[in-house]
Design a protein around this nucleic acid. Structure first.
Length: 478
RNA sequence: UCCCUAGUAGCUCAGUUGGUUAGAGCGGCGGACUGUUAAUCCGUAGGUCGUAGGUUCAAGUCCUACCUGGGGAGCCA
């Protein structure tokens, strides 16, 4: 007999049929005449209730059915008198894998997220983390579907790179040299010519520069790959290893870029609402429980309501200069409530300022554009005013910056001047500059932090809970 | 990296101004009862209190350093 999955069984009308299921025990309740076993196989949030008559099965067998044990059950699907629509009356039970109840760390009770993070290899077996995993998968699929439907090509940009000019953050070095005794040059510096690649190499911090190369031939491309930053960041929204989506489009100006970013985010959120509602409803209830412990003014909107709010409403678009004005005229600024003062043009916006704009002033996502040139990366296009660049940051409630992008500087002379001013070695970047030398065109792109998106969609508050195995300073378990 | 905070049984926590054999709930185990729903009731076994120093007649309880977790900031996605 072929095994059926619980997702299908729970929707099945085949009352009276004999079926075979396999899964892991969530809870077992013992009665005088029958045992109730909640079985979950991860295909869906809900469990299948298996009813085992104590007169049919040996006590020896029933004792092995503990939380965490793996079972295969053959039985008859019947209507249930309890809370669930259907249940399985067991005829045969096989314990495939036992789980010693004295040692198995997951108990039929609520665990803290911090504890579950320590046993990340087992946390998939909880409702919360299996729900997150399913939502995460749906979002991966939706990303590829969105771009495919729009005629984008997916590009695999390199994981190991030799360029360290991107400036997106500290890099992890990749080397096969003997770290305890590396070969050295006469001046004492490490001799990387003897390293695997014959030069110093790192894990990528962004696929953007390589993405630009492809976009300037294929028109519209996107990358979706791992990204590594060796920043010593200890926050709820940073990881040392995370996944980033970076579309890059030839012949797109900043407005086209913003339109795409907004449409993309709304598409993803709508996709989650349309395809993951059972998991989202569970995650919402989970979040509401947590909210009860917070003071009234710090509570956030109910998850599904929040997702609909973002997917159904246009984002606010305003310039950096307009944002500065709003902030300077804001109540917290006048009352001196901001920790960092807004000094006028040139001030780098702090997260308290971004949060004020998104959560208090506009109460919806905001796209900020035209930042001062000196606080942004070298490749961003200089605007006509000469002091701002065509940058855009999409700011979300709670998350902050979920997307960062720009129209790229396509003019060779302007770009090289800027690189010189920022001490970026032109010779190492000659391959990049070739795009501007030969058939250069206006183009734009952005980067979406995938885990930040998942954090928002699932309503989780720590980014370490939306990636299966988080890598962060002092933590590389599993 | 900086600031704040925590580190006590498997988990979540309580341990009063430092003072005799360190407590509870949940979970586990044993039993009772029951078509149950993180069942209920009774009983029972688990810890020397993050690590290393120090103060003191006496430290889980005070001090110092380190480690780890959590929150916030910076950096950013």
């Amino acid at each position: 007999m072929k095994r059926q999955e619980i997702k299908g069984i729970l929707q099945s009308d085949a009352i009276g049929s004999t079926i075979k299921v396999s899964g892991w025990v969530r809870t077992k309740r013992e009665s005088k005449n029958v045992n109730f076993i909640n079985l979950n196989d991860g295909t869906v949030l809900s469990n299948l209730q298996v009813v085992a008559d104590v007169t049919v099965f040996k006590e020896e067998l029933l004792k092995k059915i503990n939380t965490g044990a793996a079972l295969t059950v053959i039985g008859e699907l019947v209507e249930s008198g309890g809370q669930q629509r259907v249940e399985l009356v067991a005829k045969e039970i096989e314990v495939i894998g036992e789980a010693d109840p004295d040692k198995y760390p997951l108990q039929p009770k609520r665990h803290s997220l911090e504890f579950l993070r320590e046993i990340a290899h087992l946390r998939y077996r909880t409702n919360t983390f299996s729900a997150i995993a399913r939502v995460r998968h749906s979002m991966i699929f939706a990303v590829h579907k969105f771009f495919t439907d729009k005629g984008f090509f997916n590009i695999h940009t390199p994981i190991i790179t030799a360029s360290d000019a991107e400036g997106a953050g500290e890099m992890f070095q990749v080397s096969t040299l003997d770290m305890s005794n590396p070969p050295r040059k006469e001046n004492g510096e490490i001799d990387y010519s003897q390293d695997f690649f014959g030069k110093q190499t790192n894990l990528t911090v962004s696929g953007q520069l390589e993405g630009e190369l492809a976009a300037l031939a294929l028109s519209k491309i996107y990358t979706f790959g791992p990204t590594f930053r060796a920043e010593n960041s200890n926050t709820t929204r940073h990881l040392a290893e995370f996944w980033m989506i970076e579309p890059e489009m030839a012949f797109f100006d900043l407005n086209d870029n913003m339109d795409l970013a907004e449409e993309f985010l709304q598409y993803l959120i709508k996709y989650a609402l349309d395809n993951c509602i059972e998991d989202l409803t569970f995650l919402s209830q989970r979040a509401q429980q947590e909210e009860k412990n917070k003071p009234q003014d710090q509570r956030s909107m109910e998850l599904i309501e929040k997702l609909k709010m973002v997917s159904d409403n246009e984002f606010v678009r305003l310039t950096y200069t307009e944002a500065i004005q709003i902030l300077q005229n804001s109540k917290p600024a006048k009352k001196g409530k901001f920790q960092y003062k807004v000094e006028g043009f040139g001030t780098d916006l702090q997260s308290e300022h971004e949060r004020y704009l998104v959560e208090k002033h506009f109460k919806k996502p905001v796209i900020l554009i035209d930042y001062p040139a000196n606080i942004k990366a070298f490749y961003m296009k200089v605007n006509e005013d000469g002091k701002t660049v065509a940058a855009m940051d999409v700011l979300f409630p709670q998350i902050g910056e979920i997307i960062g992008g720009s129209q790229r500087e396509e003019r060779l002379d302007v770009l090289t001047e800027k690189m010189k001013a920022m001490d970026i070695p032109l010779d190492e970047m000659s391959w990049y500059l070739d795009t501007r030398r030969y058939g250069t065109v206006p183009h734009s792109g952005f980067g979406l932090g995938f885990e930040r998106l998942i954090t928002f969609v699932t309503g989780m508050s720590n980014i370490k809970d939306v990636i299966p195995f988080p890598r962060s300073p002092k933590n590389c378990e599993f």
